[in-house]
């Protein structure tokens, strides 16, 4: 044991934001340090999840399929009237639902991660970034499974594909960043108050309704304004367009929302770090 190599830590009551350089350095260090832990935790969670499930990966396929079946039948019997979509309607619904699910998973991920890691957080001082990263990894894993469905779908419905599909994953990352931004922002509060997870559950249903998942982008009425100002709209629509037609209609919105999401994520990361000790203090006092 060499004293020079030992890490020295100082704990004081002073707000850490007063020494931003140190704060950024620690954030960078913890991010690097949490890679491996995040990987281990992700493996642990995925394994545990599938070992306790009979249907296993089917759960990734079922929601989009049910959604598509429901809305296609409703559309055929004219219960609801959806406009013309650029690709066959069932494929449209399934593909969009898969994207929407990925967004919601990345939003819920940080909140769930922090809540379920409560006992661990209260006892061990490990880089807190790890649990968020591990959830992100899970979101990625789940999306990879959904990719199988999407591939099958595109082949079955003979959906025309544009070369821009190779850019779609980049846009997808932007969508995940937006979800993570909101999730990390709410996570510390979510540990203290159960209202947060309840509220998120309720609002996400409403939010789905405002997002062009089961219908194409509306062009008139108050509803169209709501849908237009929904930050998920430009991201989701752009991914869909990149993967199919290759003609982009929401470029400006896409970049504005992306900028907000990335900047927001950086800021909420700082907030998350600063808030966690106070949250932990309250959960296990």
């Amino acid at each position: 044991m060499n004293n020079q190599q030992l890490t020295k830590v100082v704990y004081t009551p002073e707000s850490k934001i007063k020494r931003p350089l140190l704060l950024f350095r620690l954030m960078w260090r913890d991010l690097l340090a949490s890679k491996e832990l995040a990987w281990q935790l992700m493996i642990r969670d995925i394994k545990a999840q599938y070992r306790q499930s009979f249907l296993g990966v089917l759960w990734a396929f079922l929601p989009p399929i049910f959604m598509a079946v429901g809305f296609t039948l409703a559309g055929e019997s004219n219960v609801i009237s959806v406009g013309k979509t650029t690709i066959p309607y069932p494929a449209y619904v399934m593909f969009s639902t898969a994207l929407w699910q990925t967004f919601i998973e990345s939003l819920n991920g940080p909140i769930q991660a922090v809540v379920s890691a409560k006992p661990m957080l209260a006892r061990v001082n490990f880089p807190r970034e790890a649990i968020i990263l591990s959830k992100l990894g899970e979101v990625g894993f789940n999306f990879c499974i959904k990719l199988i469905l999407i591939f099958g779908l595109f082949i079955w419905f003979k959906v025309p594909v544009s070369w821009t599909i190779i850019l779609a994953p980049v846009a997808l990352i932007h969508l995940v960043v937006l979800g993570t931004f909101i999730g990390v922002l709410l996570a510390p509060l979510g540990v203290l108050y159960q209202d947060v997870s309840k509220g998120v559950n309720m609002l996400s249903t409403f939010w789905l309704f405002l997002t062009p998942v089961v219908y194409p982008i509306p062009t008139e009425g108050i509803f169209s304004i709501l849908v237009k100002f929904n930050p998920v709209t430009p991201l989701l629509v752009t991914i869909r367009e990149l993967a199919t037609t290759g003609i982009l209609t929401q470029v400006t919105g896409f970049w504005i929302v992306s900028a907000i999401a990335f900047l927001g994520l950086l800021i909420t990361w700082i907030v998350f770090r600063l808030a966690m000790p106070y949250v932990i203090e309250r959960i296990s006092a």
Partner: peptide
Amino acid sequence: SGLINPDTGVINVTGRVAPLIALGAGFN
């Protein structure tokens, strides 16, 4: 162990701290 912030005072810690309060933390 750095889990919570002190309200007054200073703590200096040199080296890796293993908390045995955490027996089986994260056991699934």
